[in-house]
Design a protein around this nucleic acid. Structure first.
Length: 250
DNA sequence: GCGACAG
DNA sequence: ATCTTGTCGC
């Protein structure tokens, strides 16, 4: 990789801009950083969702054609039984490369398309990735929340930023994820299953720090990932599992 | 300058 | 994320 001047991207040129999804973005890294910081100011970090929750959704992304096509899967499930009600898939041409910290610029368009294809609006959305546990507090879960207005939270398999103590070995054991500089809490490191690596949980939009972990724990059954994200992950990654409604659109 | 770095 | 077999452990 070669040098990079101000206003340019890693490839030396601005990326194609999706005006609808990223209003005002100039396609540069600097512009993306500024947009993230600005959007993060609109995040509501208090519980502001329908109770009791009835239908929740899980979203995840996979790729086809050696990465040329982005495939987003959204699964709507009953908030109590966690049984899948509907599954949809949306495809979009991939426009951006993966850049740590800019994941939403690559996956958001397809994710929003998939959520829009659901027959009913979910009360809360679980995303595969960070919420506010991000350099500028706008991980994909937070961005999806701002873009759709829906309550969201992120359940990531790995840490992007933040520091934390060791986590206990038992399911439900957790430790706060803190901003390395301010020491402010930005999420949790949660042992969702015995013997498995912990999850990094953080609120996205309209969900509090305290509630984000409780919900992820409540929605995690016999696997490491919470059901919403686990099911969406299976769909997006072209894997199967058990029988369930397959309302594929697109 | 040297690592770290969601999916 | 994706390419992929076997293998160790609950």
């Amino acid at each position: 990789m070669r040098l990079q001047r101000q206003g340019e991207t890693l490839a030396g040129q601005p990326w194609p801009v999706d005006a609808a999804a990223f209003p005002g973005w100039d396609g540069t890294v600097a512009g993306a950083f500024a947009l993230q910081a600005q959007l993060a100011e609109s995040l509501l970090l208090r519980d502001d969702f329908r109770t009791p929750l009835r239908r929740i959704a899980g979203v995840d992304v996979g790729f086809e054609d050696e990465g040329r096509t982005t495939r987003a899967a959204a699964v709507l499930l009953d908030a109590d039984t966690l049984q899948p009600l509907t599954e949809v898939i949306a495809r979009r041409a991939t426009t951006m490369p993966y850049v740590p910290g800019l994941l939403s610029f690559r996956e958001l368009p397809a994710v929003v398309a998939a959520l829009s294809a659901l027959p009913q609006v979910p009360d809360l959305v679980v995303c595969d990735g960070q919420g506010i546990a991000h350099p500028r507090r706008l991980g994909i879960a937070a961005h999806v929340g701002i873009a759709t207005g829906l309550p969201t939270l992120g359940a990531a398999k790995k840490r992007l930023v933040g520091v934390h103590d060791a986590v206990g070995p038992q399911r439900s054991d957790r430790t706060p994820l803190l901003d390395a500089r301010s020491q402010e809490p930005i999420g949790w490191v949660l042992r969702s299953k015995d013997g498995c690596n912990p999850l990094i949980v953080s609120p996205g939009h309209r969900v509090s720090l305290a509630t984000s972990v409780e919900l992820v724990l409540r929605w995690t059954r016999r696997y490491r990932l919470p059901e919403p994200t686990r099911l969406a992950d299976r769909l997006a990654s072209r894997r199967g599992g058990s029988a369930s409604p397959q309302h594929s659109l697109l």
